[in-house]
Design a binder for these strands. Structure first.
Length: 288
DNA sequence: AAGTAATGCAACCGCCGAGGA
DNA sequence: TTCCTCGGCGGTTGCATTACT
């Protein structure tokens, strides 16, 4: 059974938006707010598909969008987040205020990929290109390891990092990206400084998580069941990943945010590389 | 100056999951 | 439980701009 189209294909404009259309859309959203994209075009007097309106608003018209070039810090953050999350652009974008998933996706494809290649790093696996080639050749040997990796608990991950016997994979489907890593390779690999301490605050009325697994479903869990910290006094959300590249004075301050703060790792990893993000409630909503 | 190739990015397409009926 | 709608996502396309010859 086919789905009905989201809008009438006829009688809708396509292609670049005109200034007038932009103004209509902005005006409508200012008055009525976001949502109900399907009916929006009709109400706003736009000959556009609802999806198109949503996209235009989110990627271009939203007032909180940051314009201009990506900073070096943003570059590195994107690279690190990508190594953790893979092509989950919306999740990556959620951690870069003012940037959209589309923008980051485009930036990744046009700039960062090239940058990583110039560093000799495979942008998909985040491993050295030579190591990737070697891994591909021995792919059959690592399948078992992959299966093990997918069930790795976070504490195991930290353990493995500490023992220089671990590297990240980009999800379960990436069957070529895992193998044993040499010390030399780790020294080369940008993730040799990656701190995976994943500190996620829990609402106090939710049960504490035990040491969760970091299998490929984890990002889904983060998204679908965001384990967030907020109190009635403190409308902040902490979803801090230890991503590296941060100085010591930028430690995550979760521990100061209340008693409900917890950590999934339960490890004693240092906080040297913790990078915290306190997002407004709108971020929370974006995860839902 | 003209033609061509490369690049950047806005927009589209099709699929998926959540949630309501 | 099933069906359907809707919002959202990631991949891809196509056009405008820039760089190069």
């Amino acid at each position: 059974m086919g789905r009905s189209p989201c809008c009438e294909k006829e009688h809708t404009n396509k292609g670049a938006w005109t200034k007038e259309e932009d103004e209509r859309l902005i005006k409508h959203i200012k008055i009525h707010g976001e949502g109900c994209w399907r009916s929006l075009p009709k109400v706003a007097g736009l000959l556009r598909c609802g999806k198109s309106c949503r996209l235009r608003w989110i990627n271009y018209l939203r007032p909180d969008l940051k314009r201009g070039n990506f900073s070096e810090e943003e570059d590195e953050l994107i690279i690190n987040l990508h190594s953790l999350l893979g092509n989950k652009w919306s999740l990556i974008a959620a951690r870069l205020p003012g940037r959209t998933d589309n923008e980051i996706k485009n930036y990744w494809n046009t700039h960062i990929k090239r940058k990583l290649y110039s560093r000799g790093v495979d942008p998909q696996t985040h491993r050295s290109l030579t190591a990737t080639a070697t891994t591909t050749a021995t792919a059959t040997m690592v399948t078992t390891n992959n299966k093990k990796m997918n069930n790795h608990s976070i504490s195991n991950l930290n353990h493995d990092i500490n023992n220089k016997n671990f590297h990240l994979v980009n999800g379960a489907e990436d069957s070529n990206s895992s193998s044993d890593v040499t010390t030399e390779e780790l020294a080369f690999h940008p993730h040799n400084q990656l701190n995976l301490d994943l500190s996620i605050g829990l609402p106090s009325n939710q049960p504490k998580l035990s040491s969760s697994t970091i299998n490929p479903e984890n990002y889904k869990k983060l998204k679908q069941e965001p384990q967030v910290l907020y109190t009635s006094q403190q409308q902040g959300v902490c979803l801090c990943y230890g991503l590296g590249f941060q100085s010591n004075n930028q430690k995550c301050s979760c521990k100061t945010m209340g008693t409900s703060t917890t950590t999934l790792t339960g490890t004693t990893a240092t906080n040297n590389n913790l990078y915290s993000f306190y997002q407004p409630m709108s971020f929370l909503e974006s995860l839902n």
